[in-house]
């Protein structure tokens, strides 16, 4: 009797969310695998043709897809380095007991709250008009011009804006890490006569390793999945030169109407993102055991 009653409570508490979760995540995921074996243009009245693994084989011949994969990788590497450098620098600065530290922290974190789409539009103006002006005024027209018009600089522009968005976020993680370092360890090193750099290299950085791993992989997976900033800043242009993975999938499905082929890409995308995230979890867990 009591068991039956408990079961009823169990269902009452979990069923509503499970129903929503299964409808929104689980069933579409399984449907997505199914669709990736078909050729279909997305129009309900048109037939879905079963093509087996053809979509996945066809992927290897898709040069635009490979180009997109390559620039996404390039972007991800540059973005991870840049975000973590800027974030860590600010974290070290704002934990240095300066009176303006709090205000600085507040300001640096601000861009993260503004959505990627809006950030992209803000920087579109900065690159197109402000950069041009700075170039004319300073004479450094080789550096300050409209980056968005040049294929390789457009990629750097994306790295730039992504850094602006994410630096404050990883800064918060690094701050938590730095504040977690016991004060006596640092004081001991000062008594032993360590200079600033030695302190940083031999005490702070090794103890920051957990925060480092978390920030690294967080930026890694969010850089790899970038879409909003991509859409509003460059729109994939000029001439498809900044069409990242996520945008390539969107365009293949909803732009070109290749639903089956696009979904095959989306499945591959899932495997890559999952691999990145699982590696992170593995490394974090391993380190936790060691500490």
């Amino acid at each position: 009797m009591a068991k039956k009653k408990n079961m009823a409570w169990y269902i009452l508490f979990t069923a509503p969310l499970l129903l929503i979760f299964i409808t929104v995540v689980i069933i579409p995921f399984l449907m997505g695998i199914y669709y990736s074996f078909f050729q279909w243009d997305g129009i309900g009245a048109n037939p879905k043709v079963f093509v087996g693994l053809d979509n996945f084989i066809h992927l290897f011949g898709d040069t635009r897809f490979f180009k997109s994969a390559w620039i996404t990788t390039l972007f991800t590497i540059l973005a991870v380095i840049s975000v973590n450098l800027v974030g860590l620098t600010f974290a070290l600065l704002v934990t240095s007991k300066l009176r303006t530290a709090n205000a600085a922290r507040t300001m640096v974190f601000m861009p993260y709250l503004i959505g990627g789409l809006i950030l992209g539009y803000i920087w579109q103006f900065v690159f197109s008009d402000v950069f041009k002006l700075i170039g004319v005024v300073t004479g450094l027209e080789d550096v300050f011009f409209n980056w968005l018009m040049d294929p390789s600089y457009a990629l750097y522009a994306l790295v730039f804006v992504f850094t602006w968005q994410m630096a404050g976020y990883v800064m918060i993680i690094y701050i938590a890490g730095i504040q977690g370092i016991p004060n006596d360890v640092i004081e001991a090193s000062e008594i032993d006569g360590a200079n600033r750099w030695q302190k940083l290299r031999n005490i702070i950085f090794p103890l920051l390793m957990p925060a480092f791993t978390i920030s690294l992989f967080l930026t890694l997976s969010s850089a790899f999945k970038i879409y909003d900033v991509n859409l509003s800043l460059t729109g994939g242009g000029p001439a498809n030169s900044t069409e990242m993975f996520a945008m390539n999938i969107y365009n293949e499905i909803f732009g070109y109407g290749n639903y089956g082929f696009g979904q095959a890409k989306a499945i591959i995308f899932f495997f890559i993102v999952a691999a990145i995230t699982l590696t992170q979890v593995y490394i974090t867990k391993k380190r936790e055991v060691e500490m």
């Binding site: 995540v25 579409p28 995921f29 997305g42 999945k225 969107y250 499905i253 639903y259 989306a266």
Partner: peptide, 28 residues
């Protein structure tokens, strides 16, 4: 099992779900 399923699906990017989700919502 339920908890592990919740955790595992955190790996799925939105782009993998968007098209089939739209189909399912259409049929609902």
């Amino acid at each position: 099992i339920i908890f592990m399923t919740f955790i595992a699906t955190m790996l799925i990017p939105f782009q993998t779900l968007m098209m089939p989700l739209m189909q399912l919502m259409g049929s609902i």
